[in-house]
Structure formats: structure tokens, C-alpha cells
Design a protein around this nucleic acid. Structure first.
Lengths: 338, 338
DNA sequence: CTGAAAGCGCTAACAG
DNA sequence: CTGTTAGCGCTTTCAG
């Protein structure tokens, strides 16, 4: 990367002249047109980019606290909005400037993110959506800046999450109280801790109520809306529809409901549906039919991430902390009200 | 903001000692436990934060290009995902490291964003969702770093957008070809250029086809799903439902459709609905009923923002450029197929 | 075991 | 009209 010095020497002038020109003060300082020309062509030739770091440092405004948010770049991108909304609400309460840099990463490839393992990138990082493999990696290879892990568990990092087991249990309890007898689980292909916890609790609660869930009752799909629709169509075609379906996320539920609608399967009369609410609250509430969810309070969790980050920054927090928020059941149109 | 120097003098040691300790090399360098204690308590007392700028500068291996994305912090936050997906797809093609910092701002208050008017914050900025007022402000007060304006117009900045007028026209043409005779427009309360362009073209096209749209045919709502639902319920209660409704965004359409569903109004038999597709493509496709939209290619536009930014950076672009992508009509279940 | 000092890229005060 | 230079906060090499 070319520096201002390189530009200066190529143009045959001093650095300050270059600086003056770059910052649009050429007129004011009466730099000759010729010099401006020389400098500009040097800039172009070297493809010079001013260094923001140097400028920030110099301008003493260097104390912007910079947080990197590592977020999976797949279909979970659609959950980013809700997270950012939560972050923002908390950031507004702060009187310090905080820069939020989004670092999308490929699932299972968190190890390739050099910015995670450099002290030169961010003051702190928030890591979300880690797969089991990613989690394993970061637990073995400590990250050199403060970390808040989102909805996962860790021995060495701060965590902010929800009571995933309770969420699975709540979903099962509601389905059972609504009269479900045979249940199908719609899960995401790629396994991660939060899902495992929910699923285990769901299965356990069902079993306690004499509903057995075996391998064949679990369907794996892409975690997207399209994935849910595909699974729904598939179950319908193969006459495998049970009287209740648990979806490990709301996107799949939306797709599933679309498939039911297309196939004239009545919800909740023929099939009841409950989902874990990860996406936009309104999407579920206003879907046709409106979807019963155990909502994960993403905004509160996001806000807590910022709180934790600032507490760490102010050295109030030393040992890894864990904060969990309760998920909340919203009974709506896809389950029966008995 | 305390610096490493302050820490050093409070602890009564040298800067380098502090640095060594901070970076976990105390063992390696055999710093005495006592010194470590002194330094750590000084750090805590002064609430010391290492400056990322200084670190980045020093370790000039990471001369990261930093782009600020200014995005309205209201309900449009839900559109951020789609934008980020587009950005990311383009960033991955690059071989340079680019940091994307999200700067949420309050609509009409862009003028308060100091980071926009400082050369010390970002190498370039992308500005989205500007209200008319915001646009007016930034056109009068030139921003000192390269700017790409998203889906707006400007004399002085680069713009990336869509053919808004064409989008409005396409929506009208489709509605007309589907047999609409009396049309209601559902628009957002806060006016902004893209909406105005679409609306004007929509109205004009209707008029050309002998459908007159007067003030009373235009309903203003909050641009959210809830806003659309409220407007839908309101129209129903007041017997003001026409045979076709144009929604200036898909969120409002979803809410509107929910209201229709609740009130047992059949879509598209009783009311046809078409929307401008700003949000997630899948949400509209898999909604019940699936929604006919004129889709704004947000991902492509986002990708182009990055392209433009890099072209500006490499000095290929000098005069303000404008790039526009075509919106595309997806005929689905909320309009009749005649 | 600890400190002095150079230098990352940039801007601005001051000097010619 | 243009150049010299100090210094922003930090890390690291080299000397004690």
C-alpha cells in the first residue's frame, strides 16, 4: 500500500504539500496548479489510499471503540436485522462512540478469520452462529481480545444467551396441552449447540408425556423458508404428516405452512405447528395463519452483548460471565386453544 | 481517554513494560509479579483502552479499507439483511480486506452524524434510506470522503439505484392487465424520493388507462407490517376497500394481507394486491397467499455499491456515476392471471 | 527484569 | 508557494 510519502517523492514535492492537496486546502494555501497536477497523477499512479488508522490516531479521535460482529453469511443473515436493532437500542444509551463492524463468515470456517486472532482489528468481538466445529476451534484457540459469544456456551468467554432447553420444553408442553399425539420435528441440517439443547429438551418433555419421538420422526431440512416448504411438501407427498410439527426455527415454519396451504392441509385442524422464534416478531404474528412461537428475545440478547462488552471494557468483568434471557411463548393461530 | 503512557506513569514503570504485560508476554519476558500487579491496577484505575487505530497503524500489515454504511434505524432495519447479503457476495470477490461498519441513524437526522463529515472515520461511505430532508442536507453540505448514495439521486455523489419510475409503472400495468378498475395506494407516511418516483409513475400509468387516482385513494401508513395491517383493517371497517391495492413496500402488503385474511376478504378475488418488493424475496414468495411484487434487486444494488466504492478508490471513477438496475415483476397469488 | 527509542502514516504549526 | 518537523498511541528491538 502506497503512503503519502511515496506520493510525495513520486511527485517530487513534500508530504505536507500532498496532505494539503488531499484535504482540499490547495486553494487556501495557494498551491500552484502544476503541483496539484503532479500530485494528483502520482496519487492515481500509485493508487494511493489514505490510512484511516493514521488519520484517526492523529486526530486524537482515536478513541472510537470498535466492535467486530462475526455473523454467519448464510440464511441466518436474515436474523441480523433483529440483532442490530437490539444492539442499536443499547448503543444509543451510551455516550461513547462505538463502531460496529460486521464480519460475515462462512459456517465451520471461523478459523480462517484472521481478524479474530489479531489484536489490531477490534477492541472486542461478538461471535454469533457458531457451529459445533467453530465453537470447538475457538475454545481451543483463545482469541486475544474480549469476546462475547452469542447463544452458545463456553468455559473461557463471556456468553449471552437464552434458556434453550426451556424453549424446547415450553414448545413441547404447549403442543401437548393443545392435544398433540404424534409429533414430527423439523430441524436444521447443520447441528449447533442451541438447537441440540432445544431438541433434547423437546424430546424429553414429549417422552415424559408418553409421546415418543424416534429418529424417523425427525426431519432435517435447510434452515430457510424454502427448506421448510420443501420438507412440508415432502412429508405431504409421502403421507407422513403427523398431527403436530415442531420447527426449530420460524423460517422453516413459514415455508412449511406455505406448503400446507398449497396442499389444502388445514392448520391447526389437521396439523398443529409451533416454532422457535428467531426472526422478526412481526413476520410470525402477521403470517397467515399467525404462527405460535417460543420467541427468543434476540433484541434483549443483543443489547446485553453491548452491556457485557462495555463492562469488560471498564474492567468490571473479569471471569467469564453468562447471561440468559427467558424465551416467551406466544400462542397464536397454528396451535389449538383447548 | 487514558493512554499507555498514563498507565506507565501511574504504575511507575515504562511504556514498554506496560505493552508487554498487556499483550500477555509477561511470562516470556519474565516481568515480576509485583510489576504486573501495579500495571494491572493502573489499567483498571484509569479504565485504559488500547487504541485500535494506533495498533493498526503500527502493525501496518492490516491497512484495512473501511466503509461506513449509514442505514436508517427504524423499520427499514429489516432490509439490512438483504443489503448485507449483496455486499458480502461482492466483498468475497475482492482480495483486499474491507471493513463494513454499520452506522444506524435516525431518519431526518443525518446531519447529526459527525462520522459522515470527518475524514478520520471511513475511507468511503454508503448512505441509504435518506429522507428528502436528509438528501437536501447532504447535497448542500458536501461530505469529505467518497460517497455512494443508495437508491436516491444526486448531482454530486455517485448513486446506485433502480428504475423507480419503471417499478411504479410495471405495478400499474400489471394491475390493469389483471382487471383492476378501482385502485387504492398504500404509501408510507414519511416521503422519500424513491417512493415519490414510483407513486407518480403508478398514478400516471393508471391515468393513461382511465383509472383516476385522487387524494382520497391514497392511504398513508407506517411502513411496517403492523402499519399495513392497521391500514387494511381501517379500510375494511370503513367500507373503503377497492378492487385493487398497490403497496409501496412488501411489509405493508404482508400486514394488509393479514388483515384481509382476518376479515375474510378473499385475495385476489375481492381485492388484488401488488407490492414493491424491498424485503426478503422468500418472505413474499412463501407468504399465504404468495405476493405479487415488483422486486427491487437489493442484492445487485448492494454489490454495485461495493463495485463503485472500489472503482472510486482506484481512481477509475471521478465524475459522479449513476448505476441503475431493473426491477422485476413476479406474478404470484395476490393478483389475477387473466 | 526493565527502559529508551524508533517508527507505523498522517496533519498542522511554523519556517523559509 | 513549499518544506521541516513534532507528535498522535502503540509495539518491538536493542541496551542496559
Amino acid at each position: 500500500m502506497a503512503t503519502i510519502k511515496d506520493v510525495a517523492s513520486l511527485a517530487g514535492v513534500s508530504v505536507s504539500t500532498v496532505s494539503v492537496i488531499i484535504n482540499g486546502k490547495a486553494e487556501e494555501r495557494k498551491i500552484s496548479g502544476q503541483t496539484i497536477q503532479k500530485v494528483n497523477s502520482a496519487i492515481r499512479e500509485l493508487n494511493y489510499q489514505p490510512s484511516v488508522s493514521a488519520r484517526r490516531l492523529r486526530s486524537n479521535q482515536s478513541n472510537v471503540y470498535t466492535v467486530g460482529v462475526f455473523w454467519a453469511s448464510d440464511f441466518r443473515m436474515s436474523l441480523l436485522s433483529r440483532f442490530m436493532t437490539g444492539l442499536q437500542s443499547e448503543l444509543m444509551k451510551l455516550n461513547t462512540a462505538v463502531d460496529i463492524t460486521i464480519c460475515p463468515y462462512e459456517s465451520d470456517k471461523l478459523k480462517n478469520e484472521k481478524r479474530l486472532y489479531s489484536i489490531n482489528s477490534y477492541n472486542a468481538v461478538i461471535i454469533a452462529n457458531t457451529s459445533d466445529e467453530d465453537n470447538e476451534y475457538i475454545s481451543r484457540n483463545p482469541i486475544p481480545v474480549p469476546v462475547v459469544l452469542f447463544n452458545r456456551e463456553s468455559e473461557i468467554y463471556h456468553t449471552v444467551g437464552t434458556d434453550n432447553a426451556a424453549a424446547g420444553r415450553k414448545a413441547a408442553e404447549h403442543l401437548i396441552s393443545a392435544g398433540a399425539r404424534r409429533v414430527t420435528m423439523l430441524c436444521q441440517k447443520t447441528s449447533y449447540l442451541a438447537m441440540t439443547k432445544r431438541s433434547d429438551a423437546f424430546i424429553k418433555t414429549c417422552l415424559e408425556n408418553n409421546i415418543e419421538i424416534t429418529k424417523k420422526d425427525i426431519v432435517y431440512a435447510d434452515g430457510s423458508i424454502a427448506g421448510g416448504a420443501e420438507a412440508g411438501n415432502d412429508l405431504y407427498r409421502k403421507y407422513k404428516l403427523t398431527d403436530a410439527v415442531y420447527c426449530d426455527n420460524d423460517s422453516m415454519a413459514q415455508g412449511f405452512l406455505h406448503a400446507m396451504n398449497k396442499n389444502n392441509v388445514s392448520v391447526p385442524d389437521d396439523v398443529q405447528v409451533i416454532a422457535i422464534g428467531l426472526g422478526n416478531y412481526e413476520f410470525n404474528k402477521f403470517f397467515n395463519p399467525s404462527i405460535t412461537v417460543v420467541d427468543v428475545p434476540m433484541e434483549m440478547m443483543a443489547a446485553q452483548c453491548i452491556k457485557t462488552v462495555t463492562e469488560v471494557a471498564s474492567h468490571e468483568l473479569t471471569a467469564p460471565s453468562r447471561t440468559a434471557f427467558e424465551s416467551v411463548l406466544h400462542v397464536r393461530g397454528t396451535t389449538k386453544n383447548i
